[in-house]
Nucleic acid binder design. Structure first.
Lengths: 156, 156
DNA sequence: TGACAAAATTAGATGAGACTAATTAGTTTA
DNA sequence: TAAACTAATTAGTCTCATCTAATTTTGTCA
Protein backbone atom coordinates (compact mmCIF):
# COMPACT_ATOMS: atom_id res chain seq x y z
CA UNK A 1 0.00 0.00 0.00
CA UNK A 2 2.93 2.33 -0.47
CA UNK A 3 1.82 5.46 -2.22
CA UNK A 4 4.18 7.76 -3.95
CA UNK A 5 2.97 11.01 -2.52
CA UNK A 6 3.36 14.28 -4.29
CA UNK A 7 3.90 17.44 -2.31
CA UNK A 8 0.26 18.26 -2.52
CA UNK A 9 -0.76 14.91 -1.17
CA UNK A 10 1.80 15.06 1.59
CA UNK A 11 0.24 18.33 2.61
CA UNK A 12 -3.05 16.58 3.19
CA UNK A 13 -1.61 13.37 4.62
CA UNK A 14 -3.67 11.74 7.30
CA UNK A 15 -2.39 11.70 10.84
CA UNK A 16 -3.01 9.00 13.39
CA UNK A 17 -4.88 11.38 15.67
CA UNK A 18 -8.56 10.91 16.35
CA UNK A 19 -10.90 13.46 14.82
CA UNK A 20 -11.32 14.87 18.25
CA UNK A 21 -7.69 15.44 18.92
CA UNK A 22 -7.35 16.95 15.48
CA UNK A 23 -10.12 19.37 16.33
CA UNK A 24 -8.35 20.44 19.49
CA UNK A 25 -5.05 20.96 17.70
CA UNK A 26 -6.71 22.91 14.95
CA UNK A 27 -8.63 25.06 17.40
CA UNK A 28 -5.51 25.86 19.38
CA UNK A 29 -3.78 26.88 16.18
CA UNK A 30 -6.63 29.13 15.12
CA UNK A 31 -6.95 30.73 18.55
CA UNK A 32 -3.24 31.29 18.91
CA UNK A 33 -3.00 33.24 15.69
CA UNK A 34 -6.08 35.20 16.64
CA UNK A 35 -5.59 35.83 20.34
CA UNK A 36 -1.95 35.36 21.25
CA UNK A 37 -3.02 33.78 24.54
CA UNK A 38 -4.98 30.56 24.27
CA UNK A 39 -7.51 29.96 27.03
CA UNK A 40 -9.25 26.77 28.07
CA UNK A 41 -12.44 28.75 28.11
CA UNK A 42 -12.04 29.83 24.50
CA UNK A 43 -11.23 26.36 23.26
CA UNK A 44 -14.34 25.12 25.03
CA UNK A 45 -16.38 27.91 23.52
CA UNK A 46 -15.15 27.28 20.02
CA UNK A 47 -15.75 23.53 20.20
CA UNK A 48 -19.00 23.88 22.07
CA UNK A 49 -18.00 21.72 24.97
CA UNK A 50 -17.28 22.32 28.67
CA UNK A 51 -13.96 23.26 30.21
CA UNK A 52 -13.26 19.98 32.00
CA UNK A 53 -13.37 18.18 28.68
CA UNK A 54 -10.77 20.57 27.37
CA UNK A 55 -8.49 20.01 30.36
CA UNK A 56 -8.66 16.28 29.81
CA UNK A 57 -7.82 16.67 26.15
CA UNK A 58 -4.94 19.01 26.86
CA UNK A 59 -3.34 16.43 29.11
CA UNK A 60 -3.53 13.88 26.35
CA UNK A 61 -2.09 16.26 23.80
CA UNK A 62 0.71 17.05 26.20
CA UNK A 63 1.49 13.36 26.59
CA UNK A 64 1.66 13.14 22.82
CA UNK A 65 4.11 16.03 22.77
CA UNK A 66 1.81 18.09 20.60
CA UNK A 67 1.46 20.96 23.05
CA UNK A 68 3.45 22.59 25.84
CA UNK A 69 1.17 23.00 28.77
CA UNK A 70 1.38 23.31 32.55
CA UNK A 71 -1.50 23.36 34.99
CA UNK A 72 -3.08 26.80 35.01
CA UNK A 73 -0.39 27.86 32.56
CA UNK A 74 0.08 28.70 28.93
CA UNK A 75 -1.07 26.49 26.09
CA UNK A 76 1.20 26.38 23.08
CA UNK A 77 1.66 24.02 20.16
CA UNK A 78 5.00 22.29 19.89
CA UNK A 79 6.74 22.21 16.54
CA UNK A 80 5.18 18.86 15.82
CA UNK A 81 1.80 20.08 16.95
CA UNK A 82 2.05 23.14 14.80
CA UNK A 83 3.00 21.00 11.82
CA UNK A 84 -0.02 18.77 12.28
CA UNK A 85 -2.32 21.69 12.92
CA UNK A 86 -1.30 23.28 9.68
CA UNK A 87 -1.88 20.10 7.76
CA UNK A 88 -5.35 19.82 9.15
CA UNK A 89 -6.04 23.45 8.56
CA UNK A 90 -4.90 23.14 4.97
CA UNK A 91 -7.32 20.30 4.43
CA UNK A 92 -10.00 22.43 6.00
CA UNK A 93 -9.27 25.42 3.81
CA UNK A 94 -9.04 23.35 0.67
CA UNK A 95 -12.37 21.70 1.30
CA UNK A 96 -14.12 24.88 2.29
CA UNK A 97 -12.95 26.67 -0.83
CA UNK A 98 -13.86 23.78 -3.04
CA UNK A 99 -17.40 23.69 -1.76
CA UNK A 100 -17.77 27.41 -2.02
CA UNK A 101 -16.01 28.10 -5.28
CA UNK A 102 -16.86 25.03 -7.32
CA UNK A 103 -19.95 23.62 -5.70
CA UNK A 104 -21.49 27.01 -4.98
CA UNK A 105 -22.44 26.04 -1.49
CA UNK A 106 -22.84 29.04 0.79
CA UNK A 107 -19.94 29.79 3.08
CA UNK A 108 -21.62 28.78 6.32
CA UNK A 109 -22.62 25.40 4.99
CA UNK A 110 -19.30 24.94 3.18
CA UNK A 111 -17.50 25.54 6.44
CA UNK A 112 -19.80 23.12 8.16
CA UNK A 113 -19.27 20.34 5.65
CA UNK A 114 -15.52 20.90 5.57
CA UNK A 115 -15.37 20.69 9.36
CA UNK A 116 -16.88 17.28 9.30
CA UNK A 117 -14.98 16.03 6.28
CA UNK A 118 -11.51 17.26 7.09
CA UNK A 119 -10.80 14.38 9.43
CA UNK A 120 -12.11 11.73 7.12
CA UNK A 121 -10.86 12.55 3.69
CA UNK A 122 -7.72 10.86 2.40
CA UNK A 123 -4.57 12.58 1.26
CA UNK A 124 -5.18 11.46 -2.28
CA UNK A 125 -8.72 12.71 -2.43
CA UNK A 126 -7.77 16.03 -0.91
CA UNK A 127 -4.91 16.40 -3.35
CA UNK A 128 -7.27 15.85 -6.25
CA UNK A 129 -9.74 18.31 -4.86
CA UNK A 130 -6.92 20.78 -4.59
CA UNK A 131 -5.98 20.31 -8.22
CA UNK A 132 -9.59 20.49 -9.27
CA UNK A 133 -9.98 23.77 -7.45
CA UNK A 134 -6.90 25.22 -9.13
CA UNK A 135 -8.12 24.04 -12.51
CA UNK A 136 -11.56 25.49 -11.97
CA UNK A 137 -10.23 28.86 -10.87
CA UNK A 138 -8.10 29.05 -13.96
CA UNK A 139 -11.01 28.23 -16.20
CA UNK A 140 -13.31 30.66 -14.49
CA UNK A 141 -10.81 33.49 -14.60
CA UNK A 142 -10.37 32.86 -18.29
CA UNK A 143 -14.12 33.19 -18.61
CA UNK A 144 -14.66 29.69 -19.95
CA UNK A 145 -18.24 29.25 -20.94
CA UNK A 146 -18.80 25.92 -19.25
CA UNK A 147 -18.16 27.42 -15.84
CA UNK A 148 -21.13 29.69 -16.37
CA UNK A 149 -23.31 26.81 -17.43
CA UNK A 150 -22.22 24.79 -14.42
CA UNK A 151 -22.97 27.67 -12.15
CA UNK A 152 -26.48 27.99 -13.53
CA UNK A 153 -26.99 24.30 -13.02
CA UNK A 154 -25.81 24.34 -9.42
CA UNK A 155 -27.46 27.50 -8.23
CA UNK A 156 -30.79 26.25 -9.61
CA UNK B 1 -33.70 11.86 -14.72
CA UNK B 2 -34.86 15.41 -14.25
CA UNK B 3 -35.71 15.85 -10.62
CA UNK B 4 -36.69 18.95 -8.81
CA UNK B 5 -33.97 20.03 -6.45
CA UNK B 6 -36.17 19.51 -3.42
CA UNK B 7 -36.56 15.86 -4.33
CA UNK B 8 -32.85 15.46 -4.75
CA UNK B 9 -32.07 17.04 -1.45
CA UNK B 10 -34.72 15.04 0.31
CA UNK B 11 -33.05 11.94 -1.04
CA UNK B 12 -29.83 12.87 0.74
CA UNK B 13 -31.45 14.25 3.87
CA UNK B 14 -29.55 13.63 7.07
CA UNK B 15 -30.98 11.25 9.62
CA UNK B 16 -30.58 11.48 13.37
CA UNK B 17 -28.77 8.16 13.52
CA UNK B 18 -25.14 7.96 14.54
CA UNK B 19 -22.65 7.09 11.82
CA UNK B 20 -22.37 3.72 13.40
CA UNK B 21 -26.02 2.90 13.29
CA UNK B 22 -26.13 4.16 9.73
CA UNK B 23 -23.37 1.76 8.85
CA UNK B 24 -25.27 -1.15 10.33
CA UNK B 25 -28.45 -0.24 8.51
CA UNK B 26 -26.64 0.18 5.24
CA UNK B 27 -24.79 -3.09 5.67
CA UNK B 28 -27.99 -4.97 6.40
CA UNK B 29 -29.53 -3.50 3.28
CA UNK B 30 -26.58 -4.47 1.11
CA UNK B 31 -26.40 -7.99 2.53
CA UNK B 32 -30.11 -8.57 2.22
CA UNK B 33 -30.14 -7.77 -1.48
CA UNK B 34 -27.09 -9.91 -1.97
CA UNK B 35 -27.73 -12.90 0.25
CA UNK B 36 -31.42 -13.09 1.05
CA UNK B 37 -30.54 -14.21 4.57
CA UNK B 38 -28.66 -11.73 6.70
CA UNK B 39 -26.28 -13.23 9.24
CA UNK B 40 -24.67 -11.66 12.28
CA UNK B 41 -21.44 -13.19 11.12
CA UNK B 42 -21.64 -11.50 7.74
CA UNK B 43 -22.46 -8.11 9.17
CA UNK B 44 -19.47 -8.46 11.48
CA UNK B 45 -17.28 -9.50 8.58
CA UNK B 46 -18.37 -6.62 6.40
CA UNK B 47 -17.85 -4.03 9.10
CA UNK B 48 -14.68 -5.64 10.40
CA UNK B 49 -15.88 -6.03 13.94
CA UNK B 50 -16.76 -9.00 16.17
CA UNK B 51 -20.13 -10.66 16.48
CA UNK B 52 -21.00 -9.49 19.98
CA UNK B 53 -20.75 -5.90 18.81
CA UNK B 54 -23.26 -6.70 16.11
CA UNK B 55 -25.69 -8.30 18.54
CA UNK B 56 -25.57 -5.20 20.70
CA UNK B 57 -26.20 -2.96 17.73
CA UNK B 58 -29.07 -5.10 16.49
CA UNK B 59 -30.81 -4.72 19.80
CA UNK B 60 -30.54 -0.97 19.56
CA UNK B 61 -31.81 -0.94 16.00
CA UNK B 62 -34.70 -3.11 17.07
CA UNK B 63 -35.55 -0.65 19.84
CA UNK B 64 -35.56 2.10 17.25
CA UNK B 65 -37.94 0.05 15.10
CA UNK B 66 -35.51 -0.01 12.23
CA UNK B 67 -35.22 -3.79 12.06
CA UNK B 68 -37.32 -6.82 12.86
CA UNK B 69 -35.19 -9.20 14.85
CA UNK B 70 -35.57 -12.01 17.34
CA UNK B 71 -32.83 -13.80 19.22
CA UNK B 72 -31.19 -16.34 16.95
CA UNK B 73 -33.70 -15.37 14.30
CA UNK B 74 -33.98 -13.47 11.08
CA UNK B 75 -32.73 -9.94 10.60
CA UNK B 76 -34.86 -7.73 8.38
CA UNK B 77 -35.21 -4.02 7.87
CA UNK B 78 -38.58 -2.51 8.70
CA UNK B 79 -40.15 -0.14 6.22
CA UNK B 80 -38.63 2.77 8.06
CA UNK B 81 -35.28 1.05 8.22
CA UNK B 82 -35.35 0.30 4.54
CA UNK B 83 -36.21 3.89 3.78
CA UNK B 84 -33.26 5.15 5.79
CA UNK B 85 -30.91 2.54 4.38
CA UNK B 86 -31.77 3.60 0.90
CA UNK B 87 -31.14 7.23 1.66
CA UNK B 88 -27.75 6.41 3.06
CA UNK B 89 -26.96 4.14 0.19
CA UNK B 90 -27.94 6.81 -2.29
CA UNK B 91 -25.54 9.22 -0.62
CA UNK B 92 -22.91 6.53 -0.76
CA UNK B 93 -23.44 5.86 -4.44
CA UNK B 94 -23.56 9.52 -5.35
CA UNK B 95 -20.29 10.23 -3.56
CA UNK B 96 -18.54 7.18 -4.92
CA UNK B 97 -19.50 8.01 -8.47
CA UNK B 98 -18.53 11.61 -8.06
CA UNK B 99 -15.06 10.73 -6.85
CA UNK B 100 -14.59 8.18 -9.57
CA UNK B 101 -16.14 9.95 -12.50
CA UNK B 102 -15.25 13.54 -11.84
CA UNK B 103 -12.27 13.39 -9.52
CA UNK B 104 -10.73 10.39 -11.21
CA UNK B 105 -9.99 8.68 -7.96
CA UNK B 106 -9.68 4.93 -8.31
CA UNK B 107 -12.70 2.89 -7.34
CA UNK B 108 -11.24 1.37 -4.19
CA UNK B 109 -10.22 4.72 -2.81
CA UNK B 110 -13.41 6.39 -4.00
CA UNK B 111 -15.40 3.78 -2.14
CA UNK B 112 -13.24 4.31 0.90
CA UNK B 113 -13.68 8.07 0.93
CA UNK B 114 -17.41 7.82 0.28
CA UNK B 115 -17.77 5.40 3.18
CA UNK B 116 -16.34 7.91 5.55
CA UNK B 117 -18.09 10.92 4.08
CA UNK B 118 -21.55 9.55 3.64
CA UNK B 119 -22.45 10.08 7.26
CA UNK B 120 -21.09 13.57 7.48
CA UNK B 121 -22.16 15.34 4.35
CA UNK B 122 -25.26 17.49 4.39
CA UNK B 123 -28.29 17.09 2.20
CA UNK B 124 -27.52 20.30 0.42
CA UNK B 125 -23.93 19.40 -0.33
CA UNK B 126 -24.89 15.97 -1.56
CA UNK B 127 -27.59 17.44 -3.75
CA UNK B 128 -25.09 19.75 -5.36
CA UNK B 129 -22.65 16.95 -5.89
CA UNK B 130 -25.43 15.01 -7.53
CA UNK B 131 -26.14 17.86 -9.90
CA UNK B 132 -22.48 18.35 -10.59
CA UNK B 133 -22.13 14.71 -11.48
CA UNK B 134 -25.06 14.89 -13.88
CA UNK B 135 -23.68 18.02 -15.45
CA UNK B 136 -20.26 16.51 -15.85
CA UNK B 137 -21.57 13.35 -17.43
CA UNK B 138 -23.49 15.37 -19.93
CA UNK B 139 -20.47 17.44 -20.82
CA UNK B 140 -18.21 14.45 -21.12
CA UNK B 141 -20.62 12.51 -23.28
CA UNK B 142 -20.86 15.52 -25.56
CA UNK B 143 -17.09 15.43 -25.78
CA UNK B 144 -16.56 18.87 -24.32
CA UNK B 145 -12.93 19.79 -24.51
CA UNK B 146 -12.54 21.03 -20.95
CA UNK B 147 -13.37 17.61 -19.55
CA UNK B 148 -10.32 16.25 -21.33
CA UNK B 149 -8.13 19.01 -19.99
CA UNK B 150 -9.45 18.45 -16.50
CA UNK B 151 -8.77 14.78 -16.77
CA UNK B 152 -5.18 15.41 -17.77
CA UNK B 153 -4.78 17.75 -14.85
CA UNK B 154 -6.18 15.23 -12.34
CA UNK B 155 -4.61 12.03 -13.53
CA UNK B 156 -1.08 13.27 -14.25
C1' DT C 1 -3.69 43.62 50.61
C1' DG C 2 -7.48 40.98 51.15
C1' DA C 3 -11.90 39.65 49.28
C1' DC C 4 -14.23 38.00 45.35
C1' DA C 5 -15.05 36.76 40.72
C1' DA C 6 -13.42 34.30 36.87
C1' DA C 7 -10.82 30.53 35.10
C1' DA C 8 -9.12 26.04 35.52
C1' DT C 9 -8.80 21.60 37.60
C1' DT C 10 -10.20 17.31 40.01
C1' DA C 11 -13.42 13.72 41.08
C1' DG C 12 -16.77 10.91 39.70
C1' DA C 13 -20.56 9.49 36.38
C1' DT C 14 -22.48 8.51 31.83
C1' DG C 15 -23.01 6.68 27.18
C1' DA C 16 -21.28 4.82 22.84
C1' DG C 17 -19.11 1.28 20.81
C1' DA C 18 -15.83 -2.08 20.72
C1' DC C 19 -13.49 -6.35 22.82
C1' DT C 20 -12.66 -11.30 25.10
C1' DA C 21 -14.23 -15.37 27.36
C1' DA C 22 -17.81 -18.24 28.41
C1' DT C 23 -22.28 -20.04 27.38
C1' DT C 24 -26.30 -21.36 24.71
C1' DA C 25 -28.77 -22.51 20.52
C1' DG C 26 -29.01 -24.53 15.99
C1' DT C 27 -27.27 -27.62 12.40
C1' DT C 28 -24.61 -31.39 10.47
C1' DT C 29 -23.03 -35.76 10.25
C1' DA C 30 -21.50 -40.25 11.48
C1' DT D 1 -29.88 -39.45 17.72
C1' DA D 2 -25.82 -38.11 20.00
C1' DA D 3 -21.44 -35.80 19.14
C1' DA D 4 -19.28 -32.11 17.18
C1' DC D 5 -19.20 -28.01 14.89
C1' DT D 6 -20.80 -23.35 13.82
C1' DA D 7 -23.41 -19.29 14.93
C1' DA D 8 -25.16 -16.25 18.21
C1' DT D 9 -25.71 -14.38 22.72
C1' DT D 10 -24.52 -12.96 27.48
C1' DA D 11 -21.49 -11.15 30.89
C1' DG D 12 -18.13 -8.29 31.99
C1' DT D 13 -14.30 -5.04 30.68
C1' DC D 14 -12.10 -1.23 28.13
C1' DT D 15 -11.38 3.27 25.89
C1' DC D 16 -12.86 7.62 24.41
C1' DA D 17 -15.09 11.70 24.98
C1' DT D 18 -18.24 14.00 27.23
C1' DC D 19 -20.80 15.89 31.48
C1' DT D 20 -21.92 18.03 36.49
C1' DA D 21 -20.51 19.38 40.99
C1' DA D 22 -17.08 20.66 43.91
C1' DT D 23 -12.58 22.58 44.63
C1' DT D 24 -8.41 25.17 43.74
C1' DT D 25 -5.81 28.77 41.59
C1' DT D 26 -5.24 33.20 39.53
C1' DG D 27 -6.07 37.88 38.82
C1' DT D 28 -8.37 42.23 39.81
C1' DC D 29 -9.77 46.17 42.33
C1' DA D 30 -11.63 48.76 46.19
Amino acid sequence: MSKKSSDIEDLYMNTTLSSNMEDYIETIEVLSTKNKIVRVKDIAGMLNIKMPSVTAALNKLKDMNLIDYEKYGYIELTEEGKYLAQKIYHRHTCLTEFFQTVMKIDSVEAEHVACRMEHEISAEACGKIHRFLEFFRGEESRGMEWTRRLNKCLVK
